[in-house]
Simulated assay, not measured.
Amino acid sequence: MTGRKGRWPKIDQDTGIEDTALLILEWLAERGVNAMIRVDAERVAESSPVWTFAASGGPLEKGMRADGASAAVCLSLAVAKLREIGVDVPY
């Protein structure tokens, strides 16, 4: 952790959500949420979404997962799902 709670760097809105991935993961961890994003090469052969975001713990009553064909799609879906269940991710 950075030890800089509440003092996040400004994000360039012209770059993709992938640029904020680590900030999102760190922000979630500071709130007691266990989270990860991964890529699964085996799913490429299956023509399945290869990126997965998973989170559990903290304010989440149960775990959640989002899958996408790219890191950007996966993270965007994950942030949208987190917001739907009441975790207001600031990115």
Results as ranks from 00 to 15, higher is better:
Met1Asp: 05
Thr2Leu: 12
Arg4Asp: 09
Lys5Pro: 01
Lys5Gln: 15
Lys5Asn: 08
Gly6Asp: 10
Gly6His: 09
Gly6Tyr: 13
Gly6Asn: 15
Arg7Gly: 11
Trp8Val: 09
Trp8Asp: 15
Trp8Ser: 13
Trp8Ile: 01
Trp8His: 13
Pro9Ile: 02
Lys10Asp: 14
Ile11Val: 12
Gln13Ile: 10
Gln13Ala: 12
Asp14Phe: 00
Thr15Met: 09
Ile17Trp: 07
Asp19Pro: 06
Asp19Tyr: 01
Thr20Phe: 01
Thr20Arg: 12
Ala21Glu: 06
Leu22Arg: 15
Leu22Ala: 05
Leu22His: 05
Leu25Pro: 08
Glu26Met: 07
Glu26Ile: 01
Trp27Val: 03
Leu28Gly: 04
Leu28Trp: 02
Leu28Phe: 04
Leu28Lys: 00
Ala29Met: 08
Ala29His: 07
Ala29Pro: 06
Glu30Arg: 04
Glu30Asn: 13
Gly32Tyr: 10
Gly32Ser: 07
Val33Leu: 00
Asn34Leu: 14
Ala35Gly: 04
Ala35Asp: 11
Ile37Glu: 02
Arg38Thr: 14
Asp40Ala: 11
Asp40Ile: 04
Glu42His: 12
Glu42Lys: 15
Glu42Val: 01
Glu42Asp: 12
Val44Leu: 11
Val44Thr: 11
Val44Asn: 04
Val44Asp: 07
Ala45Ile: 11
Glu46Arg: 14
Glu46Asp: 08
Glu46Cys: 10
Pro49Glu: 06
Val50Glu: 07
Val50Asp: 01
Val50Lys: 06
Trp51Asp: 02
Trp51Tyr: 15
Thr52Met: 06
Phe53Ala: 01
Ala54Lys: 15
Ala54Asp: 08
Ala55Ile: 04
Ser56Asn: 15
Ser56Cys: 11
Gly57Cys: 05
Gly58Cys: 15
Pro59Ala: 06
Glu61Leu: 02
Lys62Gly: 10
Gly63Asn: 13
Gly63Ala: 05
Met64Cys: 13
Arg65Pro: 09
Ala66Met: 02
Gly68Glu: 11
Ala69Met: 05
Ala69Asp: 02
Ala69Lys: 08
Ser70Pro: 07
Ser70Gly: 01
Val73Tyr: 00
Leu75Gly: 01
Leu75Lys: 01
Ser76Lys: 08
Ser76Glu: 12
Ser76Cys: 01
Leu77Val: 04
Leu77Met: 01
Leu77Asp: 13
Leu77Asn: 13
Val79Asn: 03
Val79Ser: 05
Ala80Tyr: 10
Ala80Arg: 15
Ala80Pro: 01
Ala80Asn: 14
Ala80Asp: 14
Lys81Met: 13
Lys81Phe: 10
Leu82Lys: 10
Leu82His: 05
Arg83Glu: 10
Glu84Arg: 10
Gly86Asn: 13
Gly86Ser: 06
Val87Met: 12
Asp88Met: 08
Val89Ser: 04
Val89Asp: 06
Pro90Ser: 06
Pro90Trp: 04
